[in-house]
Amino acid sequence: MHKYLFSRKNLGIPYALFLVLFVMAPLLVLFYYAFTNGQGEFTLLNLTGFFSDPNTLGTLCYSFGIAAVTTAVCLLLAYPVAYILATSRFRTKSVILMLFVMPMWINFSLRITALKEILTWFEGNLAYHPFLNTVLGMTYDFLPFMILPIYNTIAKLDGALLEAARDLGAGGIQAFLKVTLPLSMPGILSGVSMVFLPAMTNYVVLDMLYNSTYIMGSLIGSYFAAYNWHGGSMIALILLGIVCLFTLLTRGIEEENTRGGALL
């Protein structure tokens, strides 16, 4: 006798369906295309092809560069903002935080178009500064994703810990370096992973800024546009591997960090 139509187990069904249809199945398709050629035969050529072609490797390096610089710029801009907002006693601080986050609510292509107009006004032909423009566009786009998690961790920080540090003889800067900074690491890490990974692939920003350079995202796009599904799938798979590696790495740091002063 089943008294309840929906047991807890049944509640999981829609999610399981979603998982199979939109995560597992595409992944399998991706794997299939990555390791086959046009005739449907198994091959590793796509993989070796990627690592032997200086163009694709160059794009990988360039993407890394773009992502690293964007992340660094975002972090340098976001941390002070988050810190000042989280520790200040302004009554208006939620309003100020909202101002930083608000661009997220405006349509992405609209924002980038606006940025393009401004940059054109300064630079004339946008094609002369592809790297700078890409970093600017991505920083503008991703900054809120860096501010929010850092703000949250600092705001949740127990004020007594800072007082304890001061009490034990640490000056303001020492207390920040030894307590606030290491304890805001989880926020920094989640901010970094939310900026770094999209920055490697989000080629729409480049396209809209009339950018002729390639990052990983544009590379995949170009393969598919040329009906080379196999090569495109392999690049997507390699990117997925990089993402996994990166996630494991940050998680490792995070655990280290909570266990004992590895980052001090």
Binding site: D158, A160, L161, E163, A164, A165, V179, P182, L183, M185, N257, T258, R259, G260, G261, L264
Partner: peptide, 11 residues
């Protein structure tokens, strides 16, 4: 301190 305020990131 009242709630000890030990540093959670240090042993």
């Amino acid at each position: 301190f009242q709630r000890y305020a030990l540093f959670p990131h240090m042993n």
